[in-house]
């Protein structure tokens, strides 16, 4: 608990709130605006040809319409969380603060647990703010886009918002915890962020073209499936629709999270602090 409170002293500073929190909310608001403009017929087809609408007013008028935009691009929240976790963990080594942290809290497992719990809570608060902004902006833009919002406030609509919150938060933690592990091993934020982001944005998708089964168990595939509610949902970030069922995706995500934390803990406990 002490490590949790200590971490929040850093997380609650303006730069972090505006940087990471602002990026999550800002990105969600941007995509919500694009979705409602698109649904309102305001899209611009650059090649002059006909294209299928990404979203239309009917889709946004469904009970889950309020969170359609954010769940469709939920993977980006994971990339922001990834950057937060990696820069936080690697930064302790780069700045040399890790040695004073270990002297102040010699139980390294407690320190890691408190740190990760604080970072998870930051992401959870960020996703909540993101959803609130998405729904709020969507409600403001709905009349102009011809979207009927009555279904959003039904029990199904509120359940969809609740599910989106749980799924997006859980989906963001998989890349974040994997990047944290890379950061602990390499002690470099640049390596952790670039390797993590490259894998989740493109790497796994490219490898999947040679290795079909990766779409059934890869961390990016599991994350995307979790974000959109499992197989049958729309693909995130323009990717293919997920093939992993929701339950399997949740188990896979849990497995990746546990494995990542276990590796981070093992490395952190066993490592000599020499710099």
């Amino acid at each position: 608990m002490r490590a949790f409170r200590s971490e929040w002293v850093k997380l609650s500073r303006r730069n972090t709130l505006l940087g990471f929190g602002g990026a999550m909310v800002g990105f969600a608001v941007l995509f919500t605006i694009l979705a409602f403009v698109n649904a309102g017929g305001g899209s611009v087809d650059l090649d002059g040809g006909e294209s299928e609408d990404f979203v239309n007013a009917a889709m946004l008028s469904l009970p889950e319409g309020s969170v359609f935009a954010i769940t469709s691009v939920g993977g980006f929240l994971g990339i922001i969380a990834l950057a937060l976790f990696a820069s936080n963990l690697a930064g302790e080594f780069n700045k040399g603060t890790i040695r004073m942290l270990f002297v102040t809290e010699p139980n390294r497992l407690k320190l890691l647990a408190g740190k990760i719990a604080a970072l998870i809570s930051f992401v959870a608060v960020g996703v909540a703010a993101t959803l609130a902004a998405t729904v709020g902006v969507g409600a403001l833009l709905a009349p102009g886009a011809g979207v009927e919002t009555a279904a959003w406030w039904t029990s199904d609509g509120l359940a969809a918002i609740g599910s989106a919150y749980v799924n997006l938060t859980a989906a963001a933690l998989v890349p974040a915890l994997i990047a944290a592990t890379i950061a602990v091993i390499t002690r470099s934020a640049a390596i952790a962020i670039s390797v993590g982001a490259a894998w989740f944005i493109l790497g796994e998708m490219l490898l999947g073209t040679f290795w079909d089964s990766l779409a059934e168990w890869g961390p990016a595939a599991a994350t995307n499936a979790l974000a959109v509610g499992g197989a049958g949902g729309a693909g995130t970030m323009g990717g293919a629709a997920p093939v992993i069922a929701y339950g399997a995706a949740a188990l896979l995500a849990l497995g990746y999270c546990i494995l990542s934390v276990a590796i981070s803990a093992t490395v952190l406990v066993r490592r000599d602090v020499t710099s």
Partner: peptide, 12 residues
């Protein structure tokens, strides 16, 4: 002062 708060919170 904030730096010391980080460590004061951590060490209790």
């Amino acid at each position: 002062e904030e730096n010391l708060r980080v460590f004061a919170a951590l060490g209790g």
